[in-house]
Design a binder for these strands. Structure first.
Lengths: 341, 341
DNA sequence: ATGAAAGCGCTAACAT
DNA sequence: ATGTTAGCGCTTTCAT
């Protein structure tokens, strides 16, 4: 086998193979402009026979258009984000836009790097999680001149547009449901993530509403790393040993809540009679648990879809002014771990 | 506010603002070649003040290098793939390469489209799940002239290189462990996915080894869609109602296995005495379950890391010939649902 | 319906 | 250490 040097094929190769100008080949390949049926066929045949794959880099530079939408999220391991992603993909499939994912690991500096990197490919739009960004990131987003949708959260001021839920309100509403159900000794269990602003806001809304009723969070417990389910068990044991009088546990996510639930059931604790539980997110997993955990849906797929719609509309018509902030309403689900009344 | 037309900034703008040639600005921004400290500072200042973000499209076209690695996977919702992804990212962080994800939804035609789309950006390498691809996809991969690593599976012939485990062997080994433990009435529960070749191969290896001992799978049950945990419960109930004499259930993934486990525990069945259980994957979730499910680790992060290493090595030195197939050895974990002996 | 020319914003290669 | 020139592979625009 001769060491065939693999120079990638160009339009010129197809042009020569089909005996048509590069320009015409280009037109055929993009379905643009009038080309006779005969020519079209010859070109397509030649392209296929050669195995030609167009060079989008050159195309993008010449046309000044890139059909990419940058999607910047903190993590892929939290099921929330894959679900947002599928809402986005689903919606963009109707257009010629394509999502490209960047992951920040909840680190502002990494967010900045990823954003810079993605903007340097001149995407047609940006969808980015959260409203909290470094000054530099915000400046880049503003200067980019492309549509930007900040997702997941509406408690704050977006650079351009935002789609999400109010996490403060979500926290408040859960507090309201808990108080209404008659619980008074309330514990909070969450992640050790100072940079998870949405969890923080939920906690703030939560304590704020409790305070209105003269109630304070009686104890708290935080974790980081490891299996969320196992950690949920562990934290629940710890907090109840320390503060046995707790009659309600509010978890910052469903996975640790599920762990707590399994632990309490193992112990034979009466849930929700003796201790009530609630999580956050509405993960699909909960359906298979021995008892359905109370939770609040974060409208993930819907957020993805709406965000993608906004980008698509603005790409199609840059003048089209949409609402700046779309606040979705999460629905509380009582499950079987939060008394109703 | 005047409708300031946002022409994106170019090197030229930075050049003018700093009073240095475009070429020197380019050198500063890429840390290439010798530039005096004074000039460097002036340029960086100007670039920052303007908010200049380089245009990688132009850069890539000129330099004929793109620092992207295409990663093509079936889904993001199966935790397996985010874990592979993090192995890849982790490894590529040491280099200047960047992963870009494409999702195929287990559809060969979509894989073909995604691959075409990604190759048209002329990435430096491709990491793609599985060894089964359409002829067209395989042709594109071969013609691309860039390093290609097929991951997850080693039962077959790769286009270029492969890193994974042998799913046939994984199936065989689980069958061996089950038989050795003395189970004889064996049921199989899996996904209704004719296109999930790895699940199919595990099943084939499994039945093949059982056959050697004169055992046949006594019953099977398949599902699609919905919460895997809930489906696992449901399928387990169904299969045991239909075939009560089963004494072992082999699940094609851990989530449905976990559902089955929860169901059996609810029923008060003696696990693993009366019925043994095993899944596949080694998901982190299992740690929080009331009883640890037997499973087999798929070496996900390791696969991602190895694949990324191969790409990085070949990008650094295209001549570097590595092993073509790297087969990792999954370790069986007996947990508490498979008798040991 | 087809082609020719110019140039998108950078960088390689070669000056100086 | 810095500048100049010539493209990279396409598409836009303007002929024909």
């Amino acid at each position: 086998m001769a060491p065939t040097d693999h120079r990638p094929l160009t339009l010129r190769d197809v042009s020569e193979a089909s005996g048509v100008s590069e320009m015409t080949v280009s037109r055929v390949l993009r379905n643009r402009g009038d080309v006779s049926q005969a020519t079209r066929e010859r070109v397509l045949e030649a392209a296929k026979a050669l195995g030609y794959v167009p060079n989008k880099i050159a195309g993008a530079l010449a046309s000044q258009r890139v059909n990419l939408v940058a999607v910047i999220i903190p993590s892929l391991r939290n099921m929330v984000f894959p679900e947002v992603m599928s809402g986005i993909s689903q919606e963009l499939e109707e257009t010629d836009l394509q999502p490209v994912v960047g992951v920040t690991d909840y680190l502002p500096e990494k967010e900045e790097r990823v954003l810079y990197e993605m903007l340097s490919w001149r995407p047609s739009g940006v969808i980015i999680a959260g409203l909290e960004h470094s000054d530099a990131s915000r400046a880049m987003l503003k200067a980019s001149g492309i549509p930007v949708v900040e997702i997941m959260d509406t408690d704050g001021t977006p650079v351009d547009a935002a789609v999400g839920i109010s996490h403060r309100r979500a926290g408040r509403e859960m507090a309201r449901a808990i108080i209404r159900a008659g619980y008074t000794q309330i514990g909070f269990l969450g992640t050790k993530m100072p940079l998870d602003h949405r969890a923080r806001k939920r906690f703030e809304g939560f304590t704020e509403h409790l305070a209105k009723h003269g109630i304070e969070v009686a104890d708290q417990e935080f974790y980081s790393g490891g299996s969320a389910l196992a950690k949920g068990r562990e934290m629940t044991r710890t907090i109840l040993e320390r503060t046995p009088e707790l009659d309600f546990l509010y978890y910052s996510n469903d996975m640790i809540g599920a762990g707590g639930l399994l632990h309490l059931l193992d112990l034979g604790v009466d849930v929700p009679g003796q201790v009530g539980l609630a999580g956050f997110n509405g993960v699909e997993l909960l359906d298979g648990l021995p008892r359905k955990l109370a939770t609040m849906d974060a409208c993930r797929a819907e957020i993805g879809r709406k965000a993608a719609q906004i980008i698509a509309a603005r790409v199609a018509d840059p003048a089209s002014a949409a609402e700046k902030v779309i606040e979705l309403t999460p629905t509380i689900s009582y499950g079987e771990t939060l008394k109703r009344r």
